[in-house]
């Protein structure tokens, strides 16, 4: 049954794997271009497992930013994982601490979204999704009775392990390939392009557009501030503008 839960996790995460692979490849290749070793790039994917934040770290390291600036930026970007942990915590309260400690590793957008959907499900309609193709997994306990609750730990591992393997593997492949790509191709230009790919889809409403335009415009003159501290000045200005906009719109006078 635990194996079955692992397998069903793997099955649920499978559609999310292909888009994850190019990200890993690009991270590996750009890290090499910037002067980070293949072992370091792979270790970073394995132990940090946060593509966008890793990319930001590489971008800052190549600009000789202070270590404290690199760390702060990455952790601020990863604050959302803390929210994921907070949201997941009440659903896994019954699990032993070692399981919950394991779940803290590699908690990210995809496995969070799939896990929270599964764990906050009404247990009654749990296994109704695809009972037909469960041929060999659990022939014995096919009755509704003890399938009502999945083993959350194993299911979560099923979501996470393939995701980690594909991302870390893609990083290693990208890094090795990056070593044979010459400087002439400007592979490191993929770094801002990836940020653009992550940013643009979020800019469909006025609030986020205001945040991005303010932050982006302040960042250009602020780039002269030592140790890349201008990044915080710019991001702070953008966030302040967005917060103010929200307040004016929803404030007491607004509605």
């Amino acid at each position: 049954m635990e194996q079955g839960d692992f397998v069903s996790g793997v099955r649920d995460v499978a559609p999310a794997l292909p888009p994850n692979i190019p990200f890993g490849l690009l991270f590996g290749a750009t890290a090499i271009e910037v002067g980070i070793g293949p072992g370091q790039a792979t270790a970073m994917s394995l132990f940090v497992f946060a593509g966008a934040a890793q990319m930001a770290a590489v971008d800052l390291l190549r600009a000789d930013a202070a270590l404290s600036v690199v760390l702060t930026t990455v952790l601020v970007l990863n604050l959302r994982y803390m929210m994921y942990g907070a949201s997941l915590a009440p659903t896994v309260r019954e699990l032993p601490a070692r399981w919950r400690a394991t779940m803290g590793y590699a908690l990210s957008d995809v496995n969070y979204a799939l896990a929270i959907a599964k764990f906050s499900d009404d247990p009654a309609d749990d296994s109704s999704a695809n009972p037909a193709d469960d041929e060999a997994d659990d022939p014995a306990d096919g009755s509704a009775g003890d399938r009502a609750t999945v083993h959350q730990g194993w299911y979560y591992l099923g979501l996470t392990v393939p995701f980690v393997i594909s991302f870390v593997g893609a990083t290693a492949v990208g890094a090795v390939a990056g070593m044979s790509i010459g400087d002439g191709l400007n592979i490191d230009f993929a770094i801002p392009l990836i940020f653009i790919a992550l940013l643009a889809p979020a800019l469909k409403r006025r609030g986020p557009v205001l945040v991005a335009v303010t932050s982006g415009m302040v960042a250009v003159p602020a780039a002269g501030i030592p140790f890349n501290l201008g990044l915080f000045v710019a991001a702070g200005a953008g966030i302040a503008a967005g917060t103010l906009f929200d307040r004016l719109r929803t404030g007491p006078g607004g509605a």
């Binding site: 966008a52 971008d59 970007l77 959302r80 940020f195 940013l199 986020p208 960042a219 201008g230 991001a235």
Partner: peptide
């Protein structure tokens, strides 16, 4: 403030690049 954070940070990383 959290939803604004990645938007602000990515924008600030992109434009100088």
């Amino acid at each position: 403030v959290l939803p604004f954070v990645p938007i602000a940070v990515f924008a600030a990383l992109i434009t100088p690049d």
